[in-house]
Amino acid sequence: MTIASGDTSKSTTNGASQPLASVPMIKAVNVHKSFGHIEVLRGIDLEVQRGEVMTLLGPSGSGKSTFLRLINHLEPLSAGRLYVDGSLVGYSERNGRLHELRPSAIERQRADLGMVFQRFNLFGHMTALENVMEAPVGVRKEKRTAVQKRALELLDRVGLGDKASSYPSALSGGQQQRVAIARALAMQPKLMLFDEPTSALDPELVGEVLDVMKDLARSGMTMVVVTHEIGFAREVADHAVFIDDGVVVESGEPAQVLTNPQHPRTKAFLSKVL
């Protein structure tokens, strides 16, 4: 009955050209990203399987958040190929050349991906309930009554059923982030992206957000999480990727990467974080 399990079936039927379970949810091939003369990503190759939780770790400025923003095309990539559910993100490929998609096509791609931001970014002029309902009603044109029911269920699920009519300014950081997660889930995404979801929170509020994320992971949601929470990565992630200076330095099982890192840069980073 969880929302995520409903999505898994949806994404396999709704998927693009190759609706096979074998198609990875995310596939990055030699992804580059430059801002002006600064090359932030210098050839990222990785795959995220369906139902998998991947954590991206690395020092600030390593490019991990940028990579996350490429996945829903908040930033266009500079070179390489990035596929979500078998389809190129933001482009179509004809005769080996990338062609920019129309805005409406990009919007349709984004609507299928949930994103949670470091600074929550809840819509300040809307209540928690209105925040959660806005996209399903406005973008997907779903019936208001059905969406409202689902939105209240989602708020309940993140433990905020009693805060539906509160404005973001009346909620704590942890509560705001949980509403933000409910807002993303309301679109029934096939994939959830988390950009340092606990970095802006007071230490005592981190746990409540991580609990919601753990619950989501258990329900089978495919998740990519940029985080500094090593404990969360070790406990929940199926896959940990360490990025530094725009390249994947090390990747594998969290137990392996986090407790017995092979690369000196991973070791140096973990010794500072832990």
Binding site: N72, L74, P103, S104, E107, R108, Q109, R110, A111, D112, L113, G114, M115, F117, R119, N121, L122, F123, G124, H125, E134, A135, G138, V139, A180, R183, A184, M187
Partner: peptide, 27 residues
Amino acid sequence: VDRGQTEAAQALGMSHLRTLRRIVVPQ
């Protein structure tokens, strides 16, 4: 209006105009 508001709206698949009308202008 904070740039994050626009990004959150974009990430939800809202169009440029809808973002302006529903999210940015009211704030």
